[in-house]
Design a protein around this nucleic acid. Structure first.
Length: 443
RNA sequence: GGAGAAGUACCCAAGAGGCCGAAGGGGCUCCCCUGCUAAGGGAGUAGUGCGUGAUGAGCGCAGCGAGGGUUCAAAUCCCUCCUUCUCCGCCA
């Protein structure tokens, strides 16, 4: 949520900056300004009426004690009551529309970002290099299937398109990645938290995913609307809400968290042929990094998160790059975002494995996440930042493709071996050890 | 899943239609006393949100788990929901 004072004082400035996100909010902002004025006018009127109501109400018991006639006063009270009721209703209506519009406005992009969409994203750093191969490389779908790492067929059987099953060495590789991430983060002072995987509406609202993207998540039906929960699309949604409605002490900041969760996304209509395999699924695993900071510390925190994500990929020995997103490619809640993109040889392109963002006070305003500054005693909004550290569903394809050998085996990255009992190479022979004879013939 | 009880400030807690923005205690802050400590005496301590104002002081409105209702008037009466606790059932 944006600061209404900012909109009130510099509406044109806000409009211009939002245009950088490729969204024209001029009409919304003009409407907000009208509603804001109406709102304050109604508040003034209601409060005056209520003030009188309070005053008169105090007189009544005294009048009664004196035995005076109260019919006139009671009549006045009745009038006030009606007046207040009507004003309150008007105010409620105005505020409903006002809140709806305020919640619909995206965050302001940082001033240093390029305007426009994806086409203006700029790679700022490159890491690693491609091997020159003396054999025809396979893509990750072939490799994962042949090595028995991923069971796409049975995944689809269980839950449909967009789901897969990690099996045998595939499951161990996945688990090793997650353990590697979690361990590194903990060594660096991040608190490991395990959160519920189903969340209430407020969490999505605070994170900025709702109301706009409420159809992008899976909802769990419930008899009462209040009991409806959704499967989290990212642990960020849970972590933002951890300190919702809280006032933290300055000493408590920064809060640094990591969480591992599966992430559930509908990804309606986003399937592309090139994204087969596990490049885009309805469920994937992710370790999420999250920070709550003082406003003046969020830029440094952002750099820290980007560096952490880079180090994780770098230590896996993968070729990747870091991309500074243009304003229009940053998601609605974010003021700035850098993506870490890993190289997928078969796609001859880069795919996002981490997205690090600074929401500044946008989420904090929505979720009332605040702190008391010691020096002044004043309450201010915190800044929130998040970054994947990392999502595995594209790291694993990158590993198998970038580490594949002529004989179809895959070398296990050094960093992961300690989480795999020293395993150095995954070969087809590994399947025999873990696969049981299937009662069904599945391809 | 069923039955019951409860949710008041940093914590415990009184309060049962107007005299309640809310007793009392603990804690915390300040002051006094005692050489230090322990003990004692006194004063202060409702955050917050919103409106107004100069992002000050002040004033006003809301606020006793949340939302509705009854009433001239609600912490107090009624309804719905949420949460916590106890008991029973079911179970990884």
């Amino acid at each position: 949520m944006l600061d209404i004072k900012l909109i009130r004082e510099n509406p044109e400035d806000v409009k211009t900056r939002l245009k950088g996100k490729e969204i024209d909010c001029d009409e919304i902002i003009d409407r907000i300004l009208v509603l804001d004025a109406e709102r304050r006018d109604l508040i003034f009127k209601t409060e005056n009426a209520k003030s009188e109501q309070n005053k008169v109400s105090k007189e009544i018991p005294q009048l009664k004690k004196q035995g005076a006639d109260t019919t006139e006063v009671l009549a006045r009270m009745n009038t006030l009551k009606e007046e207040i009721k009507s004003l309150d209703n008007q105010l409620k209506q105005v505020e409903n529309e006002y809140n709806e519009l305020m919640l619909s406005l995206p965050n302001l992009p940082d001033p240093d970002l390029k305007f426009g969409g994806k086409e203006n994203n700029a790679p700022i750093r490159f890491f690693g290099s491609s091997r020159t191969l003396d054999f025809e490389p396979k893509n990750h779908v072939e490799l994962c299937t042949e090595l028995g790492l991923i069971d796409y067929t049975r995944g689809a059987k269980l839950s449909g398109n967009g789901y897969w099953i990690y099996r045998g060495m595939g499951a161990r590789l996945e688990w090793a990645l997650l353990n590697y991430f979690i361990e590194v983060h903990q060594l660096e002072g991040y608190e490991f938290v395990m959160v519920p995987h189903t969340l209430g509406y407020e969490c999505g609202l605070a994170a900025g995913q709702f109301p706009k993207f409420k159809d992008d998540v899976y909802w769990i039906e419930a008899e009462e609307d209040q009991q409806r929960r959704f499967l989290l699309p990212t642990a960020e949604t849970a972590l933002v809400s951890l300190h919702m409605y809280e006032i933290l002490t300055e000493a408590e900041l920064p809060r640094k968290y990591i969480a591992y969760t599966p992430c559930f996304r509908r990804e309606a209509g986003s399937y592309r042929a090139e994204e087969r395999g596990m490049i885009r699924g309805h469920q994937f695993n992710k370790v999420e990094m999250f920070q709550v900071t003082k406003p003046e510390d969020s830029d440094a925190a952002f750099d820290e998160l980007v560096t952490k994500a880079e180090m994780l990929v770098k230590n896996l020995g993968l070729k990747f790059r870091t991309v500074k997103l243009a304003a229009g490619d940053c998601s609605a809640s974010m003021a700035r975002t850098y993506d870490i993109e890993v190289y997928i040889p078969s796609m001859n392109g880069y795919k996002e494995v981490s997205s690090v963002s600074n929401a500044r006070d946008y989420q904090a305003r929505r979720g009332q996440i605040r702190f008391r500054r010691e020096e002044t005693g004043k309450i201010e909004y915190c800044h929130t930042l998040n970054g994947s550290g990392l999502a595995t569903s594209r790291i694993l394809p990158a590993i198998v493709e970038q580490y594949q050998q002529a004989d179809g085996s895959v070398i296990v990255p050094q960093a992961l071996r300690r989480y795999m009992r020293g395993k150095e190479t995954i070969t087809k022979d590994d399947i025999k050890r873990v696969t049981m004879k299937s009662p069904l013939s599945c391809g």
